[in-house]
């Protein structure tokens, strides 16, 4: 899995940080920071959830089987 973020779409709801704190963080101004663009398998479910609930659709996932 590869994670891509779009800072311009981020509206700083902070849900990704709540759901997957090892993959996402927030800058002081609230905008998302990507901590791990290729997270390990055990975090994939949380990252998918974070992408799904992101209100700004700022998280995109590239998944390969």
């Amino acid at each position: 899995m590869r994670v891509l973020i779009d800072e311009n779409k981020c509206c700083g709801a902070g849900q990704c940080v709540l759901i997957a704190p090892r993959v996402f963080d927030q800058r002081d101004d609230g905008i998302v920071i990507l901590l791990d663009q290729a997270p390990p398998k055990e975090l994939h479910a949380a990252v998918r959830e974070a992408a799904c609930v992101c209100p700004g659709a700022a998280i995109a996932l590239e998944e390969r089987e």
Binding site: C11, G14, Q26, D28, D29, G30
Partner: peptide, 9 residues
């Protein structure tokens, strides 16, 4: 964005 920083986790 001007106020977002007040509400980070």
């Amino acid at each position: 964005r001007s106020v977002l920083g007040e509400f980070t986790l």
